[in-house]
C-alpha cells in the first residue's frame, strides 16, 4: 500500500493512468478476444447444462468482480477517512457504478441461465438474494455520494457507508443463507455440486482475467473523468 501512496496525488495519478491506459485497453481487447473464443467456441458444452453453461463464463466473473468491487470501495473509503486521500474519493465515485453494473450483469445473466435450467427466471435462492442485496448496497452508495451539493460531504458519507456495508455483508450473507435453508428444501440443482472440469475451468479463469482487466480499465477511465469533472467544477467556481 505504501508504494501506492505516490498515486494519491490526482495530477500524478492522471499522468500515470494516461501512460498505462493504452496498453491496458489493448490487453483487455486481446484478452477478451482469446477468452470469448475459448468460452464460446473452444470449450465443450456441459453434459447436463448443454450450451447454456456458456452463460457462466460471463456470470461467474461478474459475480466475483462485483464482490471484489465492494471490497475496493471499502478500502477506498478507509483511505479517504484515514489519510484523506483526495484521489480515493474520486476513485470510489468511479468504482461504485462499475461494481453495480457487474452485480446487475451477474443478476441478469443468472436469471437468463435460470430460465432453461431451473425453469424460472428468479428463485429466492440464498445466493441470488445476497447478490441482490449487494446490488442495493451499491445503489445506496451511488445515491448517497451524489446526494449533496458539496461533493466532499457526499464522498465522506459514502465512505462511512462502504465501511459499514463491508462489516455487514458477511452478516447479511449468513442470515440469507440461513433464511433460505429454513424456508425451502435444497431441491434446485446447484452449479457447484460436481467439481468443474478443466475444459470448462480454463476458459472461466481466462474470462475472469479479462473481466478483471475490463474492470481496471473502466475504473481508471472513470477516475480520470472524475478528476477532470472536479477540475472543471473548481474552475467554474473560481471564475
Amino acid at each position: 500500500m505504501a508504494d501506492l501512496h505516490f498515486l494519491a496525488n490526482p495530477a500524478r495519478f492522471r499522468r500515470f493512468s494516461q501512460r498505462v491506459l493504452p496498453g491496458l485497453v489493448f490487453a483487455t481487447v486481446l484478452s477478451f478476444a482469446v477468452g470469448l473464443y475459448l468460452a464460446l467456441m473452444h470449450s465443450p458444452p456441459d453434459y447436463q447444462q448443454g450450451e447454456t453453461v456458456r452463460i457462466m463464463f460471463v456470470h461467474v466473473p461478474s459475480a466475483w468482480l462485483s464482490m471484489a468491487g465492494y471490497a475496493l470501495l471499502a478500502a477506498l473509503g478507509a483511505s479517504l477517512l484515514v489519510w484523506r486521500h483526495p484521489l480515493a474519493a474520486l476513485m470510489a465515485r468511479a468504482t461504485a457504478p462499475v461494481g453495480a453494473c457487474f452485480a446487475l450483469v451477474c443478476l441478469l445473466t443468472g436469471s437468463l441461465w435460470g430460465r432453461p435450467m431451473w425453469g424460472t427466471y428468479w428463485v429466492w435462492d440464498a445466493r441470488l438474494t445476497s447478490m441482490l442485496l449487494l446490488f442495493f448496497l451499491y445503489l445506496g452508495h451511488i445515491a448517497l455520494s451524489r446526494a449533496y451539493d458539496d461533493p466532499d460531504r457526499g464522498d465522506r458519507a459514502a465512505a462511512i457507508l462502504a465501511l459499514v456495508g463491508i462489516i455487514n455483508l458477511p452478516i447479511i450473507k449468513f442470515s440469507v443463507d440461513w433464511w433460505n435453508t429454513l424456508h425451502q428444501p435444497a431441491s434446485i440443482m446447484r452449479l457447484d455440486a460436481p467439481a468443474i472440469h478443466p475444459a470448462i475451468l480454463m476458459p472461466l479463469l481466462w474470462m475472469a482475467g479479462s473481466f478483471l482487466l475490463l474492470f481496471i480499465t473502466l475504473v481508471l477511465v472513470r477516475t480520470e473523468t472524475e478528476i477532470d469533472r472536479r477540475r472543471l467544477e473548481m474552475a467554474d467556481q473560481l471564475s
Partner: peptide, 13 residues
Amino acid sequence: LLALPLCVPTLIF
C-alpha cells in the same frame, strides 16, 4: 434505501 438492506438480518431472524 441505505438502511433497509442493512436491516435484512434483523428482519429475517
